[in-house]
Design a protein around this nucleic acid. Structure first.
Lengths: 163, 163
DNA sequence: CTCAAAGTGTAGCATAGAATACATTCAGTG
DNA sequence: CACTGAATGTATTCTATGCTACACTTTGAG
């Protein structure tokens, strides 16, 4: 527990009763932000894994240019990121050759795909247009916890039952 | 079909119907990813504006250390980010003094706060626990489009009516 | 077999975000 | 009024993500 710092009150700051309670709140905030930051790091991995899986499914192989087009970045960015994800064990590739998913990469891709689908279906069930649902899901999906995803699925199930 | 990977047509653009459809899909993806990336850039601004507003409301002023505690980063990161946001016109501050919001900063903070509240209330109304709703909202709120936010509000309104 | 275009890779630069280590300022206390 | 500790600021380093420009590899036309 950090000391309230006498200087503060001395400097004419409002008392703001309950320093302890406020500190806990700040910590909760901090944790949430830290979690969000961690999620950001995972986003790239998930997006790439998902994109590679999709390309392999649709055209048999994933090439750097395809990924670049799909992700809206240059081939340089893709090239470097692929190297990093290879080091992380999600992808494999050799110079001038196609990109493949490792076992773990496939797992990440599959998990991402399912979550993406649930989020899109959920948003559409709320009346959001397909295009916007797809676009929003791209940003949202990486920040949906297991508990929230379960809530989305529960909602969808109930919807389905009532029709 | 393994490593070798045939080149697509070296000359002349492939024009198969499948290709066209695929390209459109890739573009849609690319747009969604670009939007998400843009949202990431805005996240920091929104988080800081919201945090400053909250600190001013709760203790009269926002200091670097408070922000650091709240956001879960060191004071160095806060210091540099504050400088950037000041350059962007969201905050004002002088060396060794408290941080204040500009008119625009207040607008950003207010918009963020509202969106945050709607998202949290919405998640809770789906049965998500308060703690998880708060944590998820931190990541989700920056990626919720106007259309989706409106859908959330509509849902909340209907819920309220039926009780 | 040759060779040019498509596809990949590399070099170098910029920004954002985060950290550690060290320097400076400020305000209350002795 | 000098001092000390908390609060801030600066220097430097690191990683992740982007980009442009330029070099290299592959492959299919011819």
């Amino acid at each position: 527990m950090t000391q309230p710092g006498k200087r503060r009150n001395a400097r004419g700051r409002p008392k703001a009763g309950g320093e302890a309670a406020r500190a806990r709140t700040a910590d909760q905030h901090a944790d949430a932000f830290r979690r969000t930051r961690r999620a950001h790091i995972e986003e790239t991995a998930e997006d790439y894994a998902e994109a590679v899986a999709e390309l392999i499914a649709s055209r048999g192989e994933a090439r750097v240019v395809d990924l670049a087009k799909m992700l809206g970045v240059t081939h340089v960015t893709v090239s470097r990121t692929v190297a990093r994800l290879q080091a992380r064990g999600l992808l494999t590739c050799e110079p001038y050759r196609a990109i493949f998913l490792t076992e773990e990469g496939r797992r990440v891709a599959e998990r991402s795909r399912r979550r993406h689908e649930v989020v899109v279906a959920f948003l559409q069930s709320l009346g959001v247009s397909r295009a916007v649902a797809e676009a929003d899901a791209e940003g949202l999906e990486h920040h949906v916890s297991g508990e929230t995803l379960a809530a989305f699925e529960r909602f969808l199930d109930r919807r389905r039952e009532s029709f």
